[in-house]
Design a protein around this nucleic acid. Structure first.
Length: 297
DNA sequence: ATCCAGGGGTCAC
DNA sequence: GTGACCCATGGA
């Protein structure tokens, strides 16, 4: 039985991350059991399934009887680090939290919570488009239909895991098929055209990472039909981990700000900007912790 | 029935 | 750059 150990950093709570991934929604891209998570991913064209657990000092990756090359093992470790943002020292963020009266509690209540990523940019963009202007419960249902219909199922440890559909597959799906899954006409158009852009290589994570600045990344993404400021920043935050990304206008973000009495008027951009300036360099973390505050144990 | 949900596009000033 | 309007769909 293949097993890999990954050292766990300070200020990291596997339980807190797992809880968030499991909160109130039915995500089809992982399976969670007490203390562990199962997931399947595609790295360099190869499908890999794994179970992730934690002890006091490590994250434990269980691979069953899968054989991986050293390079694949490294790629998998990098994937895990990227997923849970393990390589980042988040103490500066905690110092900023401590200085903020209404938000200081987060440093203890959510201690060790990390910005959980979506490694695949195509998946991140599709997911944020699916989530546009509909409630999250329904968004997860739509994602599940899409993934079960066009993704790749993997059997592992008595679970059926799913890998998100490749753009090459999605680009040739018909509008009618997506409409039948209850995607709106607009969203179906957006998804199909973005799948084509990825399949053609016009759009890719690598290309976006070559941009010289965050602003340029936003510009490149928002030039695509269906990707507005919110979607672009969501993807940049979750996939590229550029921490200055803020999905402005996000309903959940505004609700959290209202709940904490940080704003009264949901259009008070001045106060919102002022708040985020206090968290310069950690804006995405602030957003993520505010989203965390929307769900209760 | 009506409003809302982790928005975006379009078009007029 | 800003604001008004429409788009789609399920849930509360």
């Amino acid at each position: 039985m293949k097993r890999i150990l990954i050292p766990r950093p300070n200020l990291f709570s596997f339980d807190e991350c797992l809880w968030f991934l499991n909160r109130n929604y039915d995500d089809c891209l992982h399976v969670i059991e007490p203390g562990k998570i199962h997931k399947a991913i595609c790295i360099n064209g190869q499908n890999i399934a794994f179970t992730l657990q934690a002890d006091e000092r490590h994250l434990l990756l269980h691979l069953g009887d899968q054989q991986l090359s050293p390079q694949q093992e490294q790629a998998l470790e990098r994937y895990i680090s990227d997923w849970f943002d393990l390589d980042r020292d988040i103490t500066p963020f905690y110092k900023l939290l401590a200085k903020h009266k209404q938000l200081a509690y987060m440093a203890t209540d959510y201690a060790g919570f990390r910005l959980i990523g979506i490694h695949d940019l195509f998946e991140a963009l599709c997911w944020s488009i699916i989530g546009q202007q509909i409630n999250l419960t329904f968004a997860y249902i739509l994602k599940r239909r899409l993934v079960e219909q066009y993704g790749t199922p993997i059997s592992f440890n008595d679970h059926t895991l799913h890998i998100f559909p490749a753009p090459e597959v999605l680009q040739s799906v018909s509008m009618e098929a997506l409409r039948a899954l209850q995607f709106s006409t607009r969203k179906a158009e957006y998804l199909l055209s973005i799948a084509s852009l990825f399949a053609a290589g016009t759009l890719s994570k690598e290309r976006l990472q070559q941009c010289s600045s965050y602003n340029e990344q936003v510009a490149q993404l928002t030039a695509v039909r269906g990707i507005g400021v919110w979607t672009a920043n969501y993807a940049i935050m979750k996939s590229l981990k550029q921490l200055q990304a803020i999905p402005m206008g996000d309903v959940g973000l505004l609700n959290a700000l209202t709940n904490h009495q940080l704003i009264k008027d949901r259009q008070d951009h001045t106060r919102i900007d002022k708040l985020f300036k206090q968290f310069k360099g950690w804006e995405s973390y602030l957003v993520f912790y505010l989203w965390r505050s929307l769900s209760h144990a």
